[in-house]
């Protein structure tokens, strides 16, 4: 029996209202570090328990201690200062970092939080990092003048963090690069930076890409040296899957099956249909099932419902197809070095 369709999530979960209030109080100087951390840990534990209860295979800590995904790392790295608010869409804003000097890692950033989350469960907890290209792209640069220099310095910093996570026991490490699909001409730079990040990394390396022109980015995105590419699929109607028939997908896929920017809770039927479409072009052992992106923009209840749909849909399709749920080891796979197929190998060309 083959195994596959492992369920996970992309990284963030919504913070409970009491933690949102506490973060505001902390920012205003009315709440101490220890009190805030206690609330963050309690919320982390709640999300770990929830994921275990519903049967998620590969857990995340939910990022209760993070704000924006790029700014969180910039705050901890030398060479950045944090600028004012910038809008990303609708009523969503983030503080955009500014590189004002050479970027360096001076201390572990996520290690303590990952270690804490992993101590709460026997299931694997993913290490969650933001990729060097995305941190650079979502920052202002007042120091480097060269995007490549900026990105590669960040890659060295994120590599150190990834190696620490792997040494601590993280079997799955995700390096989010949502900006990777923004500029097709810079996909080689994304891949060059990721090669630094994943160099010698003894873990299943994942990158998450979302909300870009996947049709343009494919198949060059396969040159990014990771074991798994996690893609937002529900929001884009699973269009990219059709391309896999012409140009085979060479890695494992993280298949987003619920839209994280909609209040509507998808039905299990809808999500299961998405999984079945993926199984037309990929074997189950190369399919992981999750939401399109981090769920932090939803309410706690919406996020929980969407996660239940993800898990139930995977469970249903596993039962239909006789697919097991035994987890892979979580080490490097051959897919990491399998880039875009050579032109002659593309079916139908």
């Amino acid at each position: 029996m083959s195994n596959g369709l492992w369920t996970t999530s992309v990284g963030s979960f919504p913070k409970p209202p009491e933690l949102i209030r506490a973060r505001a109080e902390h920012a205003a100087g009315r709440l101490g570090d220890e009190e805030l951390q206690a609330l963050e840990r309690r919320a982390t534990e709640d999300w770990i328990r929830f994921q275990e209860e519903i049967g998620v295979d590969i857990l995340v800590d939910g990022e209760m201690y993070r704000g924006d995904m790029a700014t969180y790392f910039a705050e901890e790295l030398a060479g950045f200062e944090i600028g004012g608010l910038v809008r990303s869409y609708g009523n969503r804003y983030y503080r955009k970092p500014i590189a004002v000097g050479e970027v360096r890692r001076t201390h572990p950033i996520t290690l303590e939080a990952w270690t804490f989350a992993q101590s709460l469960t026997d299931r694997p907890v993913k290490g969650m990092l933001t990729g060097p290209y995305t941190i650079a792209d979502w920052s202002f640069d007042e120091h480097y003048g060269s995007r490549r220099d900026f990105v590669l310095d960040l890659a060295r910093a994120i590599h150190e963090e990834a190696m620490d996570l792997a040494a601590a026991g993280a079997r799955f490490i995700q390096v989010d690069e949502p900006a990777a699909s923004a500029r097709m001409d810079e996909l080689p730079l994304v891949a060059e930076a990721m090669a630094i990040v994943t160099d010698g990394l003894q873990a299943h390396a994942i990158t998450h890409i979302c909300y870009g022109d996947f049709m343009q980015a494919y198949p060059t995105m396969l040159d990014i040296p990771v074991d798994q590419v996690d893609l937002e699929m529900a929001n884009s109607g699973y269009d990219l899957l059709e391309r896999f028939r012409e140009v085979p997908f060479t890695k494992a896929i993280g298949l987003g099956v619920v839209d994280v920017h909609s209040h509507r809770i998808e039905t299990v039927d809808e999500a299961a249909a998405g999984i079945r479409r993926a199984l037309e072009v990929l074997p189950p052992e190369r399919v992981y099932v999750d939401p399109d992106c981090g769920l932090k923009t939803r309410t706690v209840e919406e996020a929980r419902e969407k996660m239940r749909v993800v898990v139930e849909a995977a469970r249903r399709v596993r039962a239909e197809r006789g697919i097991g749920d035994a987890l892979p080891d979580g080490g490097p796979t051959p897919g990491r070095s399998l880039g875009a197929p050579a032109r002659g190998a593309e079916a139908g060309r």
């Binding site: 910038v86 869409y89 699909s181 923004a182 500029r183 909300y211 870009g212 022109d213 839209d259």
Partner: peptide, 14 residues
């Protein structure tokens, strides 16, 4: 419908 990135920015539109 769904969110899309606006050109090469970190700003999105539906």
């Amino acid at each position: 419908t769904g969110l899309l990135r606006y050109f090469d920015t970190n700003t999105y539109f539906r």
